[in-house]
Amino acid sequence: MTNAVIVDAVRTASGKGKPGGALSEVHPVELLATTLRALLTRNDIDPATVDDVIAGCVSQSAEQSINVGRNALLAAGLPESVPGTTIDRQCGSSQQAAHFAAQGVLAGAYDAVIACGVESMSRVPMFSNTQGKDPYAPLTERYPDGLVPQGISAELIAARWKLTREELDIFAAQSHQRAAAAAEAGLFGTQIVPVGDHAVDETVRPTTTPDGLAGLRPSFADPGLAERFPEITWSITPGNASPLTDGASAVLIMNEDRAAALGLRPRARFHSFAVTGSDPLLMLTGIMPATEKILARSGLSIADLDAYEVNEAFAPVPLAWLREFDADPDRLNPNGGAIALGHPLGASGTKLLTTLVNHLESTGGRFGLQTMCEGGGMANALIIERL
């Protein structure tokens, strides 16, 4: 069976996901179209040879509605014969797009496919697609005490893994320091696609320190939940959580034989996949069973992995994962994570994959793990092997 390989991966620089952010004047369709055009131009391939475009997007309303993936490929100038679809697995949407794309190649359904994602959180605010309605109302019989927002889930994780506010702030500051160092060393240069004149991650704050973060007020403190969750100490702040972010990313995935026939050099191959559901109250802990599942399937151990990208939705998430697997902290998000580089929801999966491929190449590493916690209690996990 031929391999499903990554030929190339690109992303935009992050923009602050609020009015006035660097990408806030860019329509999300054009934001994604920019990455698609760049991906095809960089590799000099006929767009008509693309069998499908699979896009991740979470808030599929307003400018991101009516199949943003299809609209973006048309805006990018791809032939009308190229189809496109948009999927939602919450924060893991474009990671799931990469899974579907690679699995389609392995199944023989695709020879060349693009997995991608976009989220303009400045123009299509988070939860705007609920239109003030409660999407969880039909679940009250199963969960009579009610589900909670992700911020409360992050507080519960910090409490149950006994992670202090100081530990969270130290980790968050480290994310900014690592991202700033990577940018200074030019490690992001080849992966970032300029949008207009914006080509530097706007969300990275090089001067961030734990002492500076210590002064921030908790974001989710709710006296009404104190009796239900007495263990919570209210330690999640804007400083140790990922910021609202605009961005897009895209990965060109091919059958290894097709890549060779086109004279393209595969950069990595898809080694293993896993996806799992988890407790929708804790919500963000699915990365643990997903990691266990993919290690069992791959035959690899944590020690075999040269890097692990664990999405930094909130600082307690990767820190709890680190404790669960007794993993090497130096291999965890080595170039910073979403706390610094931003979390453009639907684009984050292929954005992390772009970062991971480039890191393995720059360090000579062989295996990399990527895992993403997802709203509603789910997680994807993926292992790639550098070629």
Rank of each mutant, 00 (worst) to 15 (best):
L332Q: 11
L106M: 15
I302W: 03
R11H: 07
G69E: 04
A327P: 10
P125V: 13
A347P: 07
A307D: 10
L319T: 03
V113L: 07
Y308I: 13
A340N: 03
N335W: 14
G117D: 05
H99Q: 15
S219M: 10
A48C: 01
F188H: 08
I253V: 15
L322M: 09
G212K: 05
L244H: 04
A248F: 04
P223S: 09
Y143L: 02
G342I: 08
L187K: 14
V124N: 01
N129P: 03
S65C: 05
R178G: 09
I236S: 12
G239F: 02
D326M: 03
G368P: 10
D257K: 14
A172F: 05
S122P: 11
Q96D: 10
L262P: 12
E166I: 00
A307Y: 06
D326C: 07
F270K: 02
T237I: 06
P28E: 10
F171I: 09
G15D: 05
S153K: 01
N240V: 10
S348T: 15
V82R: 02
I6D: 01
T49W: 08
G196N: 02
Y110F: 14
I45L: 11
Q177T: 13
Q64A: 07
G151R: 02
E141H: 08
W321E: 02
Q150L: 13
D222Q: 14
S219D: 06
G299L: 02
D246C: 04
L252F: 03
F171R: 08
L163R: 02
N240D: 09
A182I: 05
Q90M: 14
S175G: 08
Q131E: 14
S61L: 01
E25F: 00
Y308W: 06
A158G: 11
K18R: 15
A290G: 04
E256R: 11
A22R: 04
S362T: 15
G108L: 13
F100N: 10
L345H: 11
K162Y: 02
R297P: 04
I232T: 09
G15F: 09
A327F: 12
V317M: 07
P344I: 07
G368I: 04
Q174R: 10
R142Q: 14
A315G: 09
K18H: 09
Y308C: 14
R366M: 06
Q191T: 13
G215D: 13
I294C: 11
H271P: 06
F314W: 12
M372E: 09
A315F: 10
P83R: 08
M288Y: 03
E256S: 15
F100T: 14
A38D: 15
P238E: 06
T2M: 11
N3W: 04
V5H: 06
S272N: 12
H359L: 11
T245L: 00
R331G: 03
L168Q: 13
T237Q: 07
R42P: 06
L39I: 13
A185L: 06
R386F: 01
F171W: 13
R323H: 14
A307N: 07
L295D: 10
K133N: 13
M126F: 12
L352W: 01
R228T: 15
S278H: 13
V58S: 02
Q96L: 07
R42I: 03
S14M: 07
A261K: 15
L284D: 10
L356T: 12
P334R: 06
C57H: 05
D201S: 10
S61N: 11
G189M: 00
S128D: 14
S122E: 05
S94W: 14
Y110G: 03
M1D: 06
G132E: 04
